[in-house]
Design a protein around this nucleic acid. Structure first.
Length: 153
DNA sequence: GCCAACGTTGGC
DNA sequence: GCCAACGTTGGC
């Protein structure tokens, strides 16, 4: 099993939305590296840290899991979609997505500010300068540590 | 709203 | 294949 972090803007889709919907397809990723992770490496059952970006305050909100492995992101060939890409079509899809399901919302929201102060996480990719990837792998130890921290009251 | 840090595009 | 211009992300 592998571990991941996925970013979402809560104004668009938050962990509460995921909780209500139970599961959701992760459409709209238009970055090749993030796509490759989803298309090639994410497997059913993998655990995901759900990160809230572009909000106040940004941070890790909870946990999700992969419930469906990669398949073409059809929003890429929907002209009405904000994620439309003329270079992608059903015969030769360029973009892929997975489905994730709600696991839990942290009792203790882990704000980015707070995480930055933890010495142990100095190597954590999320905290590294210039990291704009919306999907990336994390270490098992990092996941377990953050999960524990998030469940602490 | 600003802007640093990327990623992508397209002319050459 | 280089690289300038442009677009996007996302913290602050």
């Amino acid at each position: 099993m592998r571990y991941w972090l996925m970013k979402s803007e809560p104004d668009v889709f938050s962990i509460e939305d995921l909780k209500k919907k139970k599961s959701e397809h992760w459409d709209g990723v238009r970055n090749y590296q993030a796509r490759n992770y989803m298309r090639d490496e994410m497997k059913r059952g993998d655990k995901v840290l759900f990160y809230h970006s572009n909000c106040k305050p940004p941070g890790i909100a909870g946990i999700a899991k992969v419930v469906k492995e990669s398949y073409p992101d059809h929003t890429a060939w929907d002209k009405k979609s904000p994620y439309y890409d003329a270079k992608s079509n059903a015969e030769n899809p360029r973009w892929f997505m997975v489905d994730i399901a709600f696991v839990k919302k942290f009792k203790n929201y882990l704000s980015l500010h707070e995480l930055k102060n933890i010495q142990k996480l100095s190597e954590f990719k999320l905290l590294q300068k210039g990291n704009r990837l919306s999907v990336f792998p994390i270490e098992k130890a990092e996941f377990e540590y953050l999960q524990e921290l998030g469940e602490k009251v």
